[in-house]
Design a binder for these strands. Structure first.
Lengths: 344, 344
DNA sequence: TTGAAAGCGCTAACAA
DNA sequence: TTGTTAGCGCTTTCAA
């Protein structure tokens, strides 16, 4: 932004009109004679004029920009979500500012604050860690905020949410294993994703109960909070041996990366999948199709999640009424799950 | 940006000073008495003042924003690169505007143009399709542009570039196969990535030549341009059978996704890896570690690529002299490649 | 140490 | 249909 650029003043001077006439011409305002308009446009083109969006924003009180916070871009899940967001944003003429929170509360707030200063028109936050204590602070921002798969247990009513139905997803996974004859079914989870982990665990419990199975307490393996920062694959590799010893014949994993970790551990232990153990993942990232055996998993419509959230934000920007959205995951059966063997 | 926000005027009124004094206080200007400064800061805090970055940008001619164009965010390679960019940008206090080009020339230009209007301080373009015909147009932009792994054959000197050494990477791959005893080595490439594909193919040819092998023409399999838009996995699946028939015992694949496609095709044909065929990929995306067998691949330092490019941009913004950078890939040997069997 | 005033590049109300 | 003027919220001379 250093070098002096052509402004409407420059064009005005060259065209022998006032700068407001130029402004009108460029914006196709009706109160202007067609000839002058075309002439001005021609001059603008010749001078390589590029409108200054910063000045426009200051005047219009709109930046045509939205802010997006995700925990990590390198995570295939969020990458897909952001892809969906960007598609819709772009087709609506909005640019997206991207920031990462690394599941850290402070960083999330810092990102939102930065968006606030930049006066974005709206904000999208995935996997938010924000709690109701910050309601006040967020309310100040005065632009619509939509949360995607919020991890906060209870979010004030004033916020808008698009979530995946974790509870349903967990049930689909467990019911699938039950339908294959499994009754000893474990849950391999992670410690730090409060809401989604809880919901999936709850779905697991209810589904087992409905199948008439009383789950043993050691069928549920969760990493300590401390491991929260380590990667899911490693956590699962570490947790699987113990879990397998409890005699489970099927495991519902918190997500696909956890399932991959479980697979690796099984490989090392000589446990064959799905013969000795059936595995079900969650998310449906590309990777799940390419591991061996391909992973049976509960797919989240990731692109759709991003698209819907962005669409909701668009509606909010047009002051439409919107309702919170719960998207349904669906099971994709692949090679990692099979009928319980007689010797299971 | 709709609701009226607190401005320095409001604070000035409340503090009984002029707005310029407020501006000075808030910016820790030295020409101001400590008491007044603290008092003003206190009032600002009480009034929940959030500076308007748009107004600041208009005045300062700096937006503290950079624009990033990638072909796709959902691509694990670019996701990682963007992660690296964002890390460095954020620690330098810059926000990143993200846009996608989908390998499409027009979309790439549109994205850059949008950044130009928004007066970003600098631009990063990955996998650019821009040719020298657009030099003029890009020169207008007057902010530094750094290209990452540019796909353009010849880019004018005025542009800054960070690339991976594709040529070296290809040699590493082929030399690895040669060291395992392979002599009939194929190349499985894609049609549309002009530069990187050419470089890798060239590296493949040279390496073979140096090993004293005269490659048969049908050892090189490339998808038609038309398939350019399809995904790499599918292309490879389609191309592998023919390529295998030529009698190659090792294949260097354009990238990891191509290698995965090759693996899937082999599974279907009953070709076992690495016994019947050794496979080497390129990129080193996470996926490469989790397929079976794990993929031997030429790793690009993706995070580093993003970080270096962003660092170069930072240097450019400080008017430092920078030199184009070529990063070296490195081979990671895993299970998909092995010594040539006697019956190979 | 502070205030008054100009100006960044644009839009829009009001006048002509 | 066009020009004049004010103002978006800020930084920065120049005077006081």
């Amino acid at each position: 932004m250093s070098k002096r650029k052509i402004s409407i003043e420059d064009i005005a001077r060259r065209a022998g009109v006032s700068h407001s006439t130029v402004s009108r011409a460029l914006r196709d305002n009706s109160l202007i004679s067609p000839q002058v308009r075309e002439e001005i446009k021609k001059i603008a083109r010749e001078m390589n004029y590029v409108p200054n969006a910063v000045a426009q924003s200051l005047q219009n009180k709109r930046t045509n920009t939205i802010g997006v916070v995700v925990t990590s871009i390198a995570d295939p899940f969020f990458a897909e979500v952001v892809e969906g967001i960007e598609q819709v944003a772009r087709s609506a003429g909005l640019s997206v500012l991207l920031s990462t929170s690394h599941r850290d509360f402070e960083q999330e707030l810092a990102a939102i604050d930065s968006f606030h200063r930049r006066r974005v028109d709206g904000i999208l936050v995935a996997d938010s860690r924000i709690s109701k204590h910050h309601t006040q602070q967020l309310a100040q921002i005065a632009v619509p905020i939509v949360f995607l798969n919020s991890q906060t247990q209870e979010l004030p009513e004033m916020f808008h949410i698009v979530t995946i139905d974790d509870f349903l997803g967990a049930r689909l996974a467990v019911e699938h294993l039950v339908s294959l004859g499994h009754t000893s079914i474990g849950y391999l989870g992670v410690g730090d994703r409060s809401r989604s982990n809880h919901q999936r665990l709850e779905g697991y419990r209810i589904a087992l109960k409905e199948a008439g199975v009383l789950p043993k307490t050691d069928w549920v393996a969760l990493s300590d909070e401390e491991h929260g920062r380590t990667d899911d694959v490693a956590i699962a590799q570490q947790l699987l041996p113990e879990l397998f010893k409890t005699g489970v014949t099927g495991i519902f994993c918190y997500n696909d990366m956890v399932a991959v970790g479980a697979m690796l551990a099984c490989q090392e232990l000589g446990i064959s999948i799905p013969q000795d153990l059936s595995l079900v993942g969650f998310d449906g990232i590309a990777l799940s199709r390419y591991v061996t055996p391909p992973l049976t998993t509960v797919c989240q419509p990731m692109l759709e999640l991003g698209r819907s959230a962005m669409q909701m934000l668009l509606d909010l920007l047009q002051e439409k009424n919107v309702e919170n959205l719960v998207l349904s995951p669906f099971l994709v059966q692949r090679g990692s799950s099979a009928e319980l063997m007689a010797n299971g």
